[in-house]
Write a protein that binds this DNA or RNA. Structure first.
Lengths: 187, 187
DNA sequence: ACCGTGATGTCAGTCGCTGTCATCACCGTA
DNA sequence: TACGGTGATGACAGCGACTGACATCACGGT
């Protein structure tokens, strides 16, 4: 076997999540992941930039969906409203992966280094959403703030989702967080 | 000389910022920093957890000031108002270090790994501010959102400050960002 | 049967980071 | 002055993350 088994990237991603969850991030070496996926350590680093990145290959999809959500928002929607529509649309990227998201969230929560990477991805999401807002004519500072606030609501909603039993959808939780945010700023 | 020169930590922090600014973060080894500070690599790791942390030893002061600002906020101030008062107080930690902050911001902006660490520190700041808000009786979700929003305003204000000529104070920029945020949520 | 192409394996090497132990400077005390 | 305790530092070995360079293999087309 060895060479030319299909979907090496997917195998490595699954192996990594399993190992990180089983024995912890620090107790897992890249060689462990590569071995379980049936490749060598060198091949791992051809697909993922570092030991952390293997948990974040879905971030690009989330970002793309969120930007599309902002673009498709009604023309009369305000900046925060449009940004909120973006992150709500982004929920589609995780909607049917509750179990995996929950496992992954546990792994990330257990390691500061992984939290750093997640924060970087959220910041990139915010930058992308802010860019989409600027395309709508929103001035720079307002776009940055609206994007940051919407991403904060997404994070809060996501945390509530993985802490729940999964009965309600991620988008429901995010919408609730956005409503809380509005009420907060008004008060 | 070698041993017992005073302020080894300060010497290493200065050496690191210089080297990161001169030749870049990746082109600098920990051994380079230690050598310029007149110590060994091993001593560096006794003071700083890793190669990045040397740029973030002021984060604790910022956090402490922000929490104090929240605690001292008027009793009738709302969550966002109190959180805002916190980050404005935090500005005192950097008020008289414009040049150093500017250099540091340039170094951080040039390296994703350093941005990750900065985001982690900002998240910790948000958690600390949220905790202070809860002490005031603010319910958990509102406290988290208000803290996140205030920290976002701090970041926006900080970026405006380092992008400016330093004529206005950091607290002025942060206050302006907080006002923008309020206007945004109202609209 | 041959060859070009791209993915993979192999190997050596650097650097971040840690554990362990010896060594040194300082300080108090007899 | 001599002595020992204490804390910071140096010296060394070692692991694991990550990279560059080159060889090797499977597959497709000719």
């Amino acid at each position: 076997m060895g060479r030319w088994e299909p979907d090496a990237q997917g195998r490595m991603a699954r192996a990594a999540l399993e190992l990180y969850a089983e024995r912890g991030y620090e107790q897992t070496t890249v060689q462990d992941i590569a071995a379980r996926a049936g490749v060598t350590e060198r091949t791992y680093f051809r697909y993922f930039a570092d030991k952390r990145e293997v948990l974040f290959d879905g971030a690009h999809t989330l970002e793309r969906l969120a930007v599309a959500g902002v673009v498709d928002a009604p023309a009369d929607a305000g900046p925060l409203e449009a940004a909120g529509a973006g992150v709500v649309r982004g929920c589609d990227a995780l909607a049917d992966r509750y179990e995996r998201a929950r496992t992954r969230a546990g792994v990330v929560a257990a390691n500061p280094g992984l939290q750093e990477r997640e924060l970087l991805k959220m910041a990139a999401l915010g930058t992308a959403v802010a860019g989409a807002l600027r395309e709508r004519g929103v001035p720079v500072p307002a776009a940055a703030l609206a994007a940051e606030a919407a991403v904060a609501a997404f994070r809060v909603g996501f945390e509530a989702w993985v802490a729940s039993d999964g009965g309600r959808g991620l988008d429901d939780h995010v919408r609730a967080a956005l409503a809380d945010l509005r009420a907060l700023a008004a008060g």
